[in-house]
Simulated scan of single mutants.
Amino acid sequence: MTQTLTDRHLNRATLARQLLLERSDLSITDTIAWLLGMQAQQTHDPYIGLWSRLNGFSHEALTALIVDRTLARATTMRGTLHLHTIDDLIGIRAEMQPFLRSVWLSNFKKRFGGNDEAAVLELARKLLDAEPMTAGQLGKRLAERFPEGEPLAMTMLLQSTDTLIQIPPTRIWGSGHSPVITRIGNWLPAPYERPIARETLVRRYLAAYGPASVADMQSWSRLTRLGEVFEALRPELATFTAPDGRELFDLPDAPRPDADTPAPVRFLPLYENAMLGYDNRRRFLVEGDELRGDFVNNVKPGVLVDGLMSAGWGIDSKKGAAVLTVTPYHQLRKADVAEIEREGLRFLRFMEEKAETFDVRVLELAD
């Protein structure tokens, strides 16, 4: 009989793998590789995620790696933007190609008009090879030649076919400019085929997100037919049972801390790897609070208290005065509030380093 792991056991294992149980001395590049990329739909999310994971992290250090092309931002897992090392970006993006094509067929094909795909792609590539531009600018230029289709449908055809990189000076700390894109060959060096075996992806996913189910990895990536890969690897993997009976897989020697291991307060970005890494997010949620795992309904970036999604945060900064407001979702202990205030002050100084005054406010729980 396999061991049953409680949600709290799973929580502590995930926090340890995600570098959220204690800050790490890993380099930024090694951390992003370890996590298989960082969710990057919002410009500042990777900065926030890394600040909560790494000792001595600075905005400038990450920006330098993006500017010098060590790291790059493109559409990969789930058809969403991620910040990757170059090997991972190219290898994972190739694995995602069938999914990205299916998304375009489902959501944009009917809005494409009677245009010829090859002709649209030829012009789109020519335009982006001539100069980087925003997606809106590209769509407008395409519409001049192909007025029947929606501009967005035409730009999304290119994005679902080619690897498009969002490049500086956009998508770095402090930049509010609309993202500028170019094709990968205009930004990164060859080779543009750097295969990653699915067995390798499964092992790496489990190392950073395990214990996890097949459905968890499929939800994280949108890759299909992963069950057969897990089965092929079963002899080398450890298996466990979740509280609801799901089968979970893991690397045998991966850390699985005791359930009572203390977990510090951590401020998370809106789109957080650790939350998006699973089909079943119970390991991060308080009983009866499933909506906190739904990023459509839960629009605030989260605060982990004792490892659980327990509050949301927002920052207001005017005339040199920065205020971090924390909104609890549940009743918090006085000790938790004090820790939120301490960590929150450090976080606020990171987020608003040019402010003159800093204030952290933890709101009372509404009746």
Rank of each mutant, 00 (worst) to 15 (best):
M1Q: 10
H9W: 07
R12C: 09
A13Y: 03
E22H: 14
R23V: 07
R23I: 05
D25L: 06
D25M: 09
L26V: 03
I28A: 07
T29L: 12
T29R: 11
L35M: 14
Q39G: 10
A40F: 11
T43G: 08
W51I: 05
R53V: 13
N55F: 02
N55T: 05
I66R: 01
A72V: 06
T76L: 04
M77N: 06
M77L: 10
R78E: 00
L89V: 05
L89G: 08
I90T: 14
R93W: 11
R93N: 12
M96I: 00
Q97G: 08
L100T: 04
L100E: 00
S102V: 06
V103H: 03
K110L: 08
D116H: 11
A118T: 03
A124Y: 14
L127S: 15
L128Q: 01
L128P: 02
E131H: 15
A135L: 15
P147M: 09
E150S: 14
P151G: 05
T155I: 02
T163C: 14
T170Y: 11
G174Q: 01
S175T: 11
S178K: 12
I181Y: 15
R183Q: 11
I184K: 12
N186W: 00
I196W: 03
I196C: 04
V202Y: 15
R203M: 08
P211W: 09
M217H: 10
W220D: 02
R225I: 02
L226K: 10
L226T: 09
V229H: 12
L233I: 08
P235T: 12
T239K: 12
A242R: 00
P243C: 05
L248S: 02
D258T: 10
P264D: 13
V265H: 14
V265G: 14
L268G: 09
L270E: 07
G277T: 04
R282T: 10
R292D: 00
F295P: 07
V296E: 15
V296Q: 09
V303F: 09
L304Q: 01
V305K: 01
G307D: 01
M309I: 07
G320C: 06
A321L: 03
A321N: 12
T325A: 02
R333L: 04
R342H: 09
R342K: 05
E343R: 05
G344L: 04
R346H: 07
D359M: 11
V360A: 03
L363I: 02
L363K: 12
L365Q: 10
A366C: 07
D367W: 05
